[in-house]
């Protein structure tokens, strides 16, 4: 197990290095110039040339790359061209809202999605199954921003029950933190609930048709015991995979929800950085993001051993 984890951690570093090189080159090859963004719409060529020189953007690409790589190896992701703050500090500032939203979303999605999936599988072909299947199809198809604006209209503008937008840090107080995250969490959860419910339904259905389930029924096992002790445990691996992938996807996929609900998270940081061509920020976020993605996959792989004792690394 330890050797396996070590191998995976080393591969994570290799993945991050490749992502770093790829992103660095891609950004330099893509159209756009941070100096032009700094200069503003009506800046003169002379003004922009001065800013380029100041930022070191006129240096040859290999020089720029070595400068950046050395600073990353020294533990410094660089400084934002615009915010004038260290990239790591900026990311940490934005991490709390994104992690809060992601954890609440995954908690709600897993709880509701797995429950819906089990219920639909248990009552397969019945009204509950048909309704849940319809919800799963709809929830997965309707874009998040449509759900978001619908929620804002009904729960913030029409009824005034919840705030339209914004984020309050948890350290200030728990209630405003939670109140500001209810609408974004529900909005972002809809497609994940649908996705998890579909996978859970399919997995549980497959297990329910296994011989050992018939044996359990013949031995007089209760419905509860059949479902939770026998079926769910054996259907767990694919559900866990989906949850892991959903969580990893969430970290990078909260951009729309963060935009609709004006949550200052990592997703918006990246979008703004791309629009501004803030190279150090884009490189830093993608570098850390790729590392996080690999780590989440590792955690998921390791957790298989908990639901299926046959799996060994």
């Amino acid at each position: 197990m330890a050797a396996y984890v070590l191998r995976r951690l080393i591969s994570a570093i290799a993945v991050m290095a490749m992502v770093g090189i790829f992103v660095f080159l891609l950004l330099r090859l893509a159209a756009g110039d941070p100096a032009a963004v700094i200069g503003g719409d009506t800046a003169t060529e002379e003004m922009i040339a001065g800013i380029r020189e100041q930022l070191g953007l006129n240096d040859p690409l290999p020089v720029q790359f070595v400068r950046w790589a050395l600073s990353v190896l020294g533990g410094d992701l660089g400084t934002s061209i615009f915010a004038r703050q260290p990239v790591l500090e900026l990311i940490l500032q934005r991490l709390e809202p994104t992690i809060s939203l992601s954890i609440l979303t995954i908690t709600l999605s897993v709880t509701v999605g797995v429950s819906f999936g089990i219920l639909a599988a248990w009552r397969t072909g019945g009204l509950a199954d048909r309704m849940l299947t319809a919800f799963a199809t709809l929830g997965f198809s309707v874009p998040v921003f449509v759900v978001g604006f619908f929620m804002i209209y009904w729960f913030a503008i029409r009824t005034g029950l919840l705030p339209v937008q914004g984020y309050r840090p948890i350290e200030h107080s728990l209630k405003p933190w939670l109140v500001h995250l209810i609408l974004p969490t529900v909005t972002l959860s809809v497609p994940y609930i649908a996705y998890i419910a579909r996978i859970a339904r399919a997995s549980v259905l497959e297990v329910l048709s296994e011989d050992y389930m018939r044996t359990a029924a013949a031995k007089g096992a209760s419905s509860y015991s059949m479902l939770f002790h026998h079926a769910l445990k054996n259907a767990g691996a694919p559900i866990l995979t989906v949850i892991g992938l959903s969580f990893a996807g969430l970290i990078s996929g909260v951009v729309i929800t963060e935009t609709v609900f004006n949550i200052p998270g990592v997703g918006r940081l990246v979008v703004d950085a791309v629009n501004n061509r803030d190279y150090p920020v884009i490189q830093g976020v993608l570098l850390l993001g790729s590392g996080l993605y690999v780590l989440i996959n590792l955690v998921v792989d390791l957790s298989y051993t908990l639901v299926d004792p046959r799996i060994r690394y």
């Binding site: 604006f149 804002i152 209209y153 913030a156 503008i157 005034g160 705030p163 339209v164 937008q165 914004g166 935009t259 609709v260 609900f261 004006n262």
Partner: peptide
Amino acid sequence: TAFAALQA
């Protein structure tokens, strides 16, 4: 969203 925030 900005307009909704203004309305609210």
